[in-house]
Design a protein around this nucleic acid. Structure first.
Lengths: 189, 189
DNA sequence: GCAAGCATGTAAAAGGTTACATGATTCA
DNA sequence: TGAATCATGTAACCTTTTACATGCTTGC
């Protein structure tokens, strides 16, 4: 029972906004929740089947041959609330960037700087993405009851990106400017 | 071949700082890398066996009967550098808090506020932990060649915690003060 | 003598990704 | 007509956690 309640949460949540095909659901999860969630086909299809058997979603004929549009049922909404109320199951942390930086003495200062610069660039791009998303969606959806909650998740991305940029800049300064003196003398004796 | 290069990285990295038993290695990973990495016994023991077969670590008699201290070999150091240089394999994001907040209309505003308050509290506790760790370790290890890199990882935690606190405060304000008006009338019809 | 913690390992199960196989539809 | 995209589903594989089984050592 309960094939990955985490996936069920995302699937039921998606369908709670709008009925769609499994394919569209995966695209919606990738495009809309992509900054903090992901699901693959291999999870979505079996989960939809389970949810259908349990009566939490209903399958209707889709716009094409052999395609199905899924919609959430009353019991599905109840199940969604139940899942959303469950305690958050935290994934054990696995940050490949920090692991590499931690062993920076072995990896080498220059390569660490490279990693930090790449992280900074990525964070900057993400930040710009979040900001334009916020502007765009607030115009489009600013009046819907979902908007305040959606905006909270976008602002999480904004805060996180800004923190990453500030941290990377600070760290690049701490690891020394390579220009002129690739391995600077220890500043403090 | 290459049983989880990620685990190998953490294991070889740990042993590159100091030879130890598998048990101690797990404790070190939990206590020192715990803020951004984790490994379980079920990963560490088989990985050490593989690394031993490949000649990347050497097993010595430990301080107790039936216990082994592992130390990294020359080829192990080379392998570690190779692993650290590999592109970072990003785990697909799965943030249970943001998922719940995204579906906040269904979950309910009050429960969302509760989640945000809990997140804020946790971040505050983490922040204090990072700050005292920084003070403590900078006195202890401030002169070692590893310290600048270790500090980078601690400062990542500090920046991230501060961002979480600021975001949670902002979001709590945005989701409305519950005092006086638990479920404010819909502002827009 | 016994409890807590050190120490080693294995097996089963969960959770998830990737690749594959298949076919319909749209559009250039 | 052929490529891109929509669409469904399965199977194999990988990683990782959890639980279990076992025994030594230290300190009270």
């Amino acid at each position: 029972m309960a094939r990955s309640s985490q996936t069920q949460m995302a699937v039921l949540g998606g369908l709670s906004i709008e009925p769609m095909t499994a394919y569209a659901l995966r695209e919606a999860i990738r495009d809309v929740l992509g900054h903090f969630w992901s699901e693959s086909f291999g999870q979505i299809y079996p989960t939809l089947q389970t949810l259908e058997e349990e009566g939490h979603v209903r399958r209707r004929e889709g716009p094409r041959a052999r395609s199905s549009v899924f919609e959430i049922t009353g019991s599905g909404t109840a199940r969604l609330i139940e899942l959303l109320t469950e305690p958050i199951r935290g994934t054990p942390p696995r940050d490949g960037l920090l692991l590499r930086l931690f062993f920076g003495r072995t990896l080498g200062r220059e390569r660490c700087r490279g990693l930090l610069e790449a992280a900074r660039d990525t964070a900057l791009k993400n930040l710009q993405g979040y900001e334009s998303l916020q502007t765009q969606l607030s115009a489009q959806e600013g009046d819907t009851p979902d908007w305040p909650f959606i905006e909270v998740t976008i602002r999480a991305g904004i805060h996180h990106s800004r923190a990453t940029i500030a941290w990377a800049d600070e760290s690049l300064a701490a690891l020394g400017d390579p220009a002129g003196h690739p391995e600077p003398e220890e500043p403090q004796p």
